[in-house]
């Protein structure tokens, strides 16, 4: 029975990792073909950094991910606090509207934003793609912060005021530190969602501005250049490395910190959300 279980787990992991293994192996393949192995090479890794199209896509991917997650976090923190203080009825209305971009299929969000931009006579490109990313990021930021606000002791803010803090001080020194874990979760979630987005970007960009997903989609039917395999191998290895470092650090640290990380992970189920925008 135990053997059977182990085999099953192994088979599922083999299924999940087979395509990734293939991508990595073919990044070292001498030939451009995606089927035949013709010897080991590192040339795709060299050429990767000279490829204008890929480098520009990489640049836009990260630029948009950074800008959109920072802006979405700023708007989202303010909005979460505002929504938290609202009366019941408007609060419910806003929260329901906030769910629209999360529940709507990405393709519908994408085309409705495209229709809006064309309707407003905006030319599709960097600005429209950035606006779209901020739009689909804010709801996730708000939803990561609201639970933290609800957990917070309501009287802390007033206590700070009674002890002589100005409202500004109370805001920055009491409320913000209390909800910080939620802010960080929301920011990371926004960042990864933006980094990985294809569908919404595909409909809201134009005039030569592409992110990595769009470049890959464009290449897929003709055959993807091994340079992309090389790039994704590098990205995959950096994520793997990052996760290993984080885990090693946690197990080295004292139990208290460990418990804290565990707790923040509970809130950080976002990891599994990343592939959701398909």
């Amino acid at each position: 029975m135990r053997f059977l279980k182990k085999t099953y787990v192994f088979l599922i992991f083999a299924f999940l990792y087979a395509p990734i293994l293939v991508l990595i192996v073919f990044s070292f393949n001498e030939s451009k073909s995606r089927a035949n192995w013709e010897g080991f090479t590192l040339k795709w890794y060299m050429e990767l950094f000279q490829d204008r199209q890929i480098m520009s896509a990489l640049y836009y991917t990260f630029l948009i991910a950074v800008l959109s997650s920072v802006i979405a976090t700023l708007i989202g923190v303010a909005a979460a606090i505002g929504i938290y203080k609202m009366r019941k009825l408007p609060q419910n209305l806003v929260l329901n509207l906030n769910y629209i971009p999360i529940l709507n299929p990405d393709i519908v969000t994408g085309i409705s934003l495209m229709v809006l931009f064309i309707f407003m006579k905006m030319s599709l490109g960097f600005a429209t793609m950035l606006l779209a990313h901020i739009t689909f990021n804010i709801p996730y930021v708000i939803l990561s912060i609201l639970p933290k606000l609800k957990q917070m002791n309501k009287h802390m803010y007033e206590a700070a005021l009674d002890l002589g803090a100005t409202p500004m001080e109370a805001f920055w020194k009491v409320i913000i530190p209390e909800i910080m874990p939620g802010i960080i979760t929301g920011f990371l979630l926004a960042f990864t969602l933006s980094l990985d987005d294809f569908v919404i970007s595909f409909f809201t960009t134009g005039s030569g501005v592409s992110n990595l997903s769009i470049v890959i989609f464009g290449m897929a039917r003709r055959g993807i250049s091994p340079k992309i395999n090389a790039l994704s191998t590098l990205m995959f290895l950096s994520v793997l490395l990052l996760l290993i470092i984080v885990n090693l650090r946690i197990s080295k640290d004292n139990p208290e910190r460990r418990a804290k990380v565990e707790r923040s992970k509970e809130n950080g189920r976002y990891l599994s959300d990343i592939g959701h925008n398909i």
Binding site: L23, L212, S213
Partner: peptide, 11 residues
């Protein structure tokens, strides 16, 4: 899921 999903599908 950390690897681009278009790439995994392409694989």
């Amino acid at each position: 899921m950390w690897m681009n999903f278009l790439l995994r599908t392409y694989a």
